[in-house]
Amino acid sequence: MPFFRTTSSSWRTAVATLATVLTLGGAGCAVPEDPQSAPSAPAGSGDASAQLSQLKVASEGSMSGYNRKRFPHWRKTGKNCDVRDSVLQRDGTDIKLSGCNVVGGRWISIYDNGNFSDPSDVDIDHTVPLANAWRSGADEWDDTKRGDFANDLTRPQLLAVSATSNRSKGDQNPAQWKPANREHWCKYAQDWITVKHHWKLSVTDAEKAALSDMLSTCR
């Protein structure tokens, strides 16, 4: 009768993987089993360039009528959990939970390489800021669609980063602000383009030029 040999190391790996799955599943939130459990990969540099060429180029619209409440967030993702908890758990390691709330862990901010263990020092950044989206087409959406955008876990729209970098960025586009970590410029441009392409948001001439320059850093 044929049999299969399993090394002790591979067996330990399998057991550890199963334990992780059971632990996360028992937490009652934060890691849904649908495509929104992790952001989709951004377009590669070639695809991103093609998508960038397809974006509508227009001057920024007015901020008239803008309010963050017009982009309802954070939506619930489980009992006592919301999208913020989901992103903190997804982007961190050694996560500690109190019920379903993330109360500890380790995060590396890809914008500035900062290391954090206190979730209060971490912000959830919208890659394409809500105000920028408003000025580039979201002002014409209804609040339900704006809520879908603000809670988008499928595209690379939500990232756990340092609070200082997020607040330095504000609502600026890549022509006005870039991550201090230059090694992240390629992916930042890819992420920005992926989000704007999916949501059919426009870019300015300067924004498009900056994104093109950032894509040139892709290796």
Rank of each mutant, 00 (worst) to 15 (best):
P72T: 04
P35F: 09
A210I: 03
L159S: 03
E33I: 12
V103Q: 02
I110H: 14
N113F: 11
K178T: 13
N181I: 12
P32Q: 10
Q89E: 14
L201Y: 05
C218A: 10
R90W: 15
G92D: 07
A150N: 08
D34C: 04
G61P: 12
D118C: 04
L22N: 13
P2F: 01
S37P: 03
D123A: 14
A138T: 09
V128F: 08
L88I: 04
N151W: 06
D47I: 01
S120D: 15
D139M: 10
N166Q: 07
L201H: 05
P39N: 11
N151T: 06
L97T: 04
N173K: 03
P129K: 01
S37T: 13
P174I: 04
A189P: 09
W177T: 03
T20Y: 10
A43R: 06
H73I: 01
D34N: 14
K196P: 01
A131P: 09
R12W: 00
P32K: 03
S49Y: 05
V195C: 05
S120N: 13
S109F: 08
V203I: 02
K76C: 03
K196F: 00
R5F: 12
A41L: 12
K178N: 06
A138W: 02
T6I: 14
A150W: 05
A50P: 03
R146L: 06
V103T: 12
L22W: 00
I95P: 03
I124G: 01
D213C: 04
N181G: 10
G170A: 09
P32L: 09
D191G: 07
N151R: 04
S45Y: 10
G44E: 08
E183R: 08
V21Q: 13
L201F: 08
S168M: 07
A30R: 15
C186A: 09
V57M: 03
W107C: 08
H73P: 03
P156L: 09
S37L: 12
S120Y: 11
G25I: 11
E60G: 11
K76P: 12
C218F: 06
T154L: 11
A133D: 06
E207W: 05
N173H: 08
D205I: 09
L18D: 14
I193D: 01
A30S: 14
A14N: 11
A43K: 11
T93V: 15
A175K: 02
N113W: 10
A133Y: 09
A30G: 15
I193K: 00
Q172P: 02
A16G: 13
I193F: 00
A150R: 07
H197Y: 09
A138D: 08
N80D: 15
S10I: 12
N101E: 15
C100M: 08
Y188Q: 08
A50H: 09
P39T: 11
K208Q: 14
Q51A: 11
L88N: 06
L159G: 00
E60R: 15
Y66R: 08
V21A: 13
A41N: 10
Y66F: 15
C186F: 02
T127I: 11
V87L: 01
K200Q: 14
A131K: 15
L211D: 05
R106Y: 14
H198D: 04
L97D: 01
L88E: 05
D34A: 02
N67E: 12
S64K: 13
R84Q: 04
E60F: 13
K76M: 10
G28A: 04
A138L: 03
V203Q: 00
T13K: 15
E33W: 14
